[in-house]
Design a protein around this nucleic acid. Structure first.
Lengths: 197, 197
DNA sequence: TGGCTGACAATTATTGAAATCTGTCAGCTG
DNA sequence: CAGCTGACAGATTTCAATAATTGTCAGCCA
């Protein structure tokens, strides 16, 4: 192997950690396992991450960032803001619900992981709310929505749709009505955004 | 003791079961413990409840029914429907959040208990949605809200406010912004109800 | 005779000794 | 000499033997 292929980077450690989490689950994944995948002593892992918690937080951060990326509102600016909002909400719901359906065990592992990474989740929520805020601000700009505080409205929309994207509610996603339920909530919300308070 | 004081009723068993849950928590509460409180053999408890799960479901049902009672919309019909809606939501949030704050351990016990009693919870959710539907129907009647399907709207409002009353979100209730967040969501929702789709 | 008891089989939980894990660091090595 | 190793202390987890629990039912007794 060339030296470059062997350099121990945070990236490689995170890949290995994800691999171990996938295979063993949160409860059984150890730092020693991660090091074993990398054919390295576990002391080397501690050279890059001060504690196991820091490593787990980093895995959670990367996972959540991957969810955020395809949602960026600047990737989908066509049509009225109300419909962009629906598409955004449906996309977020589809990402989470899709993972939960495809591989429930892996989804449960990552859900637990993030639940224990409070600060990381807070940043993720801020990021999601900011994306909603952008769509709402665009809608206000074009006169489609009434003038209001877009930041507050963004957070409110995120909170009001928690049932459809928050991992805590994963058990409820088995209900086939879940898609229509989201549409019903969206209708109320965009009507609310359309009128002056 | 007079015989009447000694008759083993479902009521007395539920009281004892609640007592045991309070003291030992869900994980450690056994049917033998419940029988011990009643100074009776555990076989006698099985005369009234076919399984431990049935007993737990009954405790959950009674607990949830106690939450429902003070929320009945016919107990508070003053003022515009929008404000009745806010009061109802705030009352529900206050009941749950109050329990979670006063005795987090007990709240966690009962939350787990209900989480495992899926059918009982479904009935509870139906009941809550029906109460919201009534308030919304009243609002439509008086012309305050636009004509719409009050049943769908009732469920949508309940789902949209899940963050503020669903025990899954109890950890988020420590945030002092939670009260304002509910108000923000309510504002969006009642605006949405006020306009025709 | 209706309601209760208590012994019993099968399953599930507890326990404590042994094994493993986390986090550190002195020293090795390429 | 920067980066890695591997032994170590203290904390946590595993595992298998032991105990308790769930659910049943034949018989007791008021």
């Amino acid at each position: 192997m060339s030296p470059a292929a062997v350099v121990l980077t945070e990236e490689r450690i995170l890949d290995a950690a994800e691999d171990v989490l996938r295979r063993f689950g949160l409860a059984k994944a150890t730092v020693v396992d991660v090091a074993k995948v990398l054919r390295v002593s576990h002391g080397s892992v501690y050279r890059h991450f001060p504690t196991k918690v820091a490593l787990r937080d980093a895995v959670a951060r990367r996972w959540l960032d991957r969810i955020i990326k395809p949602l960026d509102p600047s990737l989908d600016t066509a049509g009225p803001a109300a419909e962009r909002l629906l598409r955004w909400l449906q996309r977020l719901a589809a990402i989470k619900q899709g993972m939960a359906l495809e591989d429930p065990e892996l989804f449960a592992t990552f859900s637990q992981l993030t639940a224990e990474a409070r600060e990381v989740v807070a940043a993720h929520v801020d990021h999601l709310a900011a994306q909603l805020t952008q769509i709402i601000a665009d809608g206000i700009e074009t006169g489609e929505f009434a003038r209001t505080d877009a930041v507050t409205a963004g957070r409110a929309v995120l909170y009001a749709t928690a049932r459809f994207h928050h991992p805590l509610h994963a058990a409820e996603w088995a209900d086939p009505a879940i898609h229509d339920d989201l549409t019903a909530v969206w209708k109320l919300l965009v009507n609310g955004l359309g009128t002056s308070p």
